[in-house]
Design a protein around this nucleic acid. Structure first.
Length: 685
DNA sequence: AGCACGCCGACT
DNA sequence: GTCGGCGTGCTC
């Protein structure tokens, strides 16, 4: 058995007579004075060691994952220096009853009206509830309707709603256009990789029709009775993909992501386990779905950092896990991007993975992109002029800023110290309706006092989406404005529906709206501050800047009218911004690669980040560093980090060549509980 | 990770 | 004399 404890050995138990237990089953066992659930890893005729006092297992909950799923999670656990049992506990969901509140619409808007018409007389309550769901109302609003739970159950039974949480309602699929020559060739190549266990990069600018290739590939795979898993970096991108996949495949794909209620999550997992899952759309955790006969995994926007799990162990990257699956199951892996990670493009360049290019843009000319000075304003003169012009011509405007809140910092007027979270030391961000909030731990305070001098007067500074929204409303009174970021995402369905209907003229948001959205009415995209990502302690700052600009720009002009993109920046000549303006990835890649080579960053070196928690962190890391240090392995640090939830932290960066993971594994087969091992880190704070 | 044991300091 | 702080060690 693999048990969810930080002890790197498997445990032997006796199987009681008459109990059906197999590899991959979830089983409860006595462990010391308690009972623990674990996964059966092996069935043996005799104990692994002499002298073990075996205890019988208590009960079984049946299959939890197939035997090869254990190998998959074992590969992940090994890279992150976590025990197999703990990694399994993090990646395999537990059976749970299906809960209400996680229902999505399974009908097109036209069918909804038909259904409402039919139900109005015989089942008025169901009709009322269905109408609310169709409007994208939240569960909180639904429960005010009397009898909502039973109406929901009936609607599920009739197949009008399906128990998969999708954050906004079904959107009508436009009729599938036929693939152009390039796309057809790409599709053929991808299908040739099915069964080969090979990975391929699909490189094409925004609106070059990458999604069409994914969908056609998924359909071809499903027709061969194999399964496909399509990954998006964020939940907000799933409804659109789900709807398009549904239209293309002719059956309902499953949805799988971290926001699912336990019941819905287990439902999709179990479907995969029993071979009923033919297609799934999901976020990074969906890469573990134990789909049988897997033919294809698509990682859309493969460079998005959201694919990296970096809040709790095991630290993994869905792109790497997808390739583990290719190795184990022989499926094809398709990595899609308009601005690939430099490391991924490098792998394609040296022939480690395949490369497919799409060059033609679908429908219409590419947007006109230009840089304009920030000039210390939220909305500079050029951006204001452009907004007015596009509004006058009936267009919609999208304003993008990668930061939440109203003011993003507060400084004490008495002693000039920054107002920080008492347990994380991170600067508190002022939100207009919730006061000062720590974005790391959620601590909030309405009327803060300076911890240094006791003062209660602060100078507020910095710019977040709330303040952009406020400024837009001030400059364009009477224009309908909406804001979409993680603090308003509960109403994402309603907000995006209003954008689709053209009722919202200006949409302000964070990265949630920066990629993937496909609204033909949006003709102008404004990037409020393109310099934001450059100041971070992160070797990928330039890459992220290039990617964010290209992705946000890709939201403009997806309809018939030509799009325009304004990038507010004070460094228009800095290479990531300069090349992003012209969309010249090749030029950006060459400059960035030179920089990476000079400073010995990936792909020219392998990084591993060790984070120690607790007051002895630095000393302990010092010891680890001395043990690892050798020719070819650079030890950077230890250096202190901001505390998290009051726990002091320190980090050690290791830099070496491809052998670093193996070396580290010899020295540190398993990380002690105070240490977190993050292979290929993306964040450094 | 839990959970118990065990060894010290503070309080009835 | 007892309660409870958390360092240490074990779990088939």
């Amino acid at each position: 058995m693999a048990l969810p404890i930080p002890h790197d050995e498997l445990f032997d138990y006796l199987v009681p007579e008459g109990l059906d237990v197999g590899v991959g089953h979830r089983v409860q066992v006595p462990l010391g004075k308690r009972a623990a659930w674990g996964i059966v890893v092996e069935l043996l005729p005799a104990p692994t060691r002499e002298g073990l006092q075996l205890r019988p297992l208590l009960r079984s909950a049946g299959p939890a994952l197939p035997p090869w799923g254990i190998d998959l999670v074992a590969a992940v656990a090994r890279r992150a220096h976590v025990t197999l049992g703990l990694a399994l506990a993090q990646t395999v969901p537990t059976p749970a009853r299906l809960r209400a509140g996680t229902l999505g619409l399974a009908l097109s808007p036209a069918d909804v009206n038909k259904a409402l018409e039919e139900m109005r007389r015989r089942a008025p309550r169901q009709a009322a509830v269905l109408a609310l769901v169709a409007e994208g109302r939240s569960w909180e609003e639904l429960r005010t309707v009397r009898g909502a739970p039973s109406a929901l159950r009936a609607l599920v039974r009739k197949g009008f709603l399906q128990p998969s949480f999708l954050p906004f309602a079904y959107r009508e699929e436009r009729p599938p256009p036929s693939l152009n020559h390039e796309q057809g060739q790409a599709l053929e190549q991808v299908l040739g990789l099915v069964g080969e266990g090979k990975t391929c990069l699909l490189f094409g600018p925004p609106a070059s029709g990458k999604t069409e290739v994914y969908l056609e590939a998924a359909r071809a795979v499903a027709e061969e009775r194999r399964s496909a898993v399509l990954l998006e970096p964020e939940v907000s991108l799933l409804p659109q993909l789900w709807a398009r996949a549904r239209g293309r495949l002719g059956f309902d794909p499953y949805a799988y992501h971290g926001g699912l209620a336990p019941g819905a999550r287990w439902q999709a997992w179990e479907a995969a386990l029993h071979g009923r899952l033919r297609c799934a759309v999901g976020t990074r955790s969906a890469v573990f779905l134990p789909a049988r006969d897997l033919g294809l995994v698509v990682v859309d926007e493969e460079s998005e950092p959201a694919y990296k799990q970096d809040e709790r162990a095991p630290y993994y990257h869905a792109r790497e896990v997808a390739q583990d699956r290719a190795r184990i199951q022989g499926c094809a892996v398709l990595l899609g991007s308009a601005a690939p990670a430099v490391t991924t493009f490098h792998r394609a360049e040296i022939g480690e993975i395949g490369l497919l290019k799409l060059q033609e843009r679908w429908g219409g000319a590419p947007p006109q992109v230009r840089a304009v000075p920030k000039s210390g304003k939220i909305l500079g003169a050029e951006l204001q002029e452009a907004i007015r012009r596009h509004l006058d011509h009936g267009g919609q405007v999208l304003l993008f800023l990668n930061r939440l809140g109203f003011f993003t910092g507060a400084i004490c007027r008495g002693c000039h110290s920054l107002l920080r979270c008492p347990s994380c030391a991170l600067g508190l961000v002022y939100h207009r309706n919730r006061g000062f909030i720590c974005h790391a731990c959620g601590y909030s305070v309405a009327h803060p006092r300076c911890p240094t001098c006791g003062g209660d007067r602060f100078r507020l500074f910095g710019l977040g989406t709330e303040r952009v929204e406020h400024e837009v409303k001030r400059c364009f009174p009477g224009t309908p404005v909406a804001r979409l970021d993680s603090s308003t995402s509960r109403d994402a369905g309603g907000i995006l529906a209003a954008v689709a209907r053209g009722e919202v003229r200006i949409l302000v948001g964070t990265q949630m709206i920066g990629k993937g959205l496909d609204f033909p009415g949006i003709t102008l995209v404004g990037i409020i501050d393109a310099d934001l990502l450059l100041g971070r302690p992160d070797y990928r700052g330039a890459e992220r800047t290039y990617q964010v600009i290209v992705a946000a720009a890709g939201r403009a002009g997806r309809g018939t009218a030509r799009g325009e993109v304004l990038v507010q920046t004070d460094q228009p000549d800095y290479y990531p911004i300069r090349h992003a303006l012209t969309g010249n990835y090749g030029a950006f890649y060459q400059e960035e690669l030179n920089y990476r080579r000079t400073l010995r960053y990936p792909p020219f070196a392998q990084l591993v980040r060790l984070v120690a928690e607790g007051p002895q962190g630095p000393q302990r890391l010092e010891k680890v560093g001395r043990a690892v240090a050798r020719p070819g392995v650079e030890v950077l640090g230890p250096s202190p980090l901001l505390p998290r939830r009051g726990i002091p932290r320190a980090q050690l960066l290791l830099r070496g060549d491809k052998d670093l993971p193996r070396l580290l594994h010899e020295l540190l087969p398993l990380a002690p509980t105070w240490l977190r091992v993050d292979p290929d880190p993306l964040t450094f704070w």
